[in-house]
Amino acid sequence: MNTDVTNVYYSGLLLEWPPRAIQRTDLEQLRDFSFSGAIAGTNWELFWFRSDKALRPEDRPGPYRYPILCRRSGSRILMLSVARQVVEHLMESELERVFSPRLRRVSIAVDGLVKAMADKPTAYSLSFAHARVPAFGSSLRALSFYGDDLAEASLFRERIGLMVFFTCGLREAAGGSEIVRLGADGTISFFMAESHRVLEVEKALGFLRHEGYLTSDVLAT
């Protein structure tokens, strides 16, 4: 595995393409996009995307190379890079050209997840949560919580009904650092200190899928 891709904070989106399973060859049709290899012992794939335009603040002239970390699973794909803007750029330009109908974001029911975890502890604990507080309007817009196990604190649980969570972080209840941070709009990010971190992220996403917290943004009617 290319050592360039560790010790990096990855951020991106969970996407879905309803017509069929997404193949590696689909991604290889993207312009300036090249397959680098799989991450050893995992089903994660690394691509490199070349861009003449800076897709995040850069301190040198282009062209630029951005790592794109992908995990395909049936009609869903998790695409991550060094900045979320890189994936958004791909969505708006390249992916729309290759995938028709367009790839859709998969929403994560963060509010439901946080409230369920506060109600009934799971194998994961909350390491971070950010919430809007709609009742008080501009007087009090949002709250952020940090800790090892937020739901354990009564202060957090007692006023939870007034909060609407849209970002949270998960860690294993047994300990360790934060595994993954989730956004209601399908944003996923994590720090990859070592390559096996992707397996922990994958397991956490499996938990979300199993518990029904992932929903496509395609409307039924």
Binding site: V164, A184, D185
Partner: peptide, 14 residues
């Protein structure tokens, strides 16, 4: 309580 129900939007990323 009523304002929370009225003003909540869960489809925002923040």
């Amino acid at each position: 309580k009523i304002a929370t129900a009225l003003r909540t939007e869960s489809e925002i990323s923040g």
